[in-house]
């Protein structure tokens, strides 16, 4: 199978999962689309090298590192004029209200904290695997997870009440 066919097969199999992770990281559909597209460009450039490693782990690392690094640059010009989440207030009933509150709380985490939470609790990676994706130490993963969960509890106590007891 040639490189392009492998790429297409990978995207067909994992594109949806990458999209979901991108949305959890960015909390915004347009930003998630940009992140996935940016990841695909890097992936195309580097695919030849990626075949020597686990492609999924490799692409995951591209996605998360582009998010953390790219968000840092974007916020310098965007945040002074940032506005509330586009869907905030659109639906205030029941579970939807909880979901929006959790989403807003995630928005207030640092990108690395958000990435750590998504990797640990959505992708189900271990601390060591998470550390490898983000190129940080497992100790940093541990501390960032603890701080992020505490921050979520402060910001969205109702939404995260059921998480109490989670060991970080």
């Amino acid at each position: 199978m040639d490189g392009e066919a492998e790429l297409r097969e990978f995207v067909a199999a994992r594109g949806a999962a990458l999209s979901r992770a991108a949305f959890l990281l960015t909390g915004d559909h347009q930003a998630a689309e940009d992140l996935v597209q940016d990841t695909y460009v890097v992936m195309v450039q580097r695919w030849r090298k990626a075949d020597k490693v686990d492609p999924e782990a490799y692409v995951r690392r591209i996605l998360y590192s582009r998010f953390v690094d790219g968000w840092r640059r974007r916020r310098l010009r965007e945040l002074p004029w940032s506005s509330p989440s586009e869907t905030r207030g659109a639906d205030t009933t029941g579970a939807a209200a909880d979901r929006l509150t959790l989403r807003d709380a995630l928005d207030r985490l640092t990108p690395r904290q958000r990435a750590v939470l998504v990797l640990r609790f959505y992708d189900d990676l271990t601390e060591v695997q998470t550390a490898d994706v983000l190129a940080i130490s497992p100790n940093t993963v541990k501390s960032q997870t603890r701080v992020a969960l505490q921050r979520l509890r402060e910001l969205a106590p109702d939404a995260v009440a059921e998480f109490e007891g989670v060991e970080s």
Binding site: E4, L7, R8, V11, G15, A16, L18, S19, R20, A22, F23, L24, H29, A32, E33, L35, V36, Q37, T39, Y40, V41, M43, V44, Q45, A95, D98, R99, L102, R103, L117, V118, F121, Y122, D124, A159, V160, E162, F163, V166
Partner: peptide, 28 residues
């Protein structure tokens, strides 16, 4: 943890599939 996982799953339940591989290939 399962509660957090469930909430995250709910957040992304309607997430479309992003990205255009053909466009990325052309760009490169």
């Amino acid at each position: 943890m399962s509660g957090l996982r469930a909430s995250l799953d709910e957040m992304v339940a309607d997430t479309p599939v992003y990205g255009d591989l053909d466009r990325a290939i052309q760009q490169v």
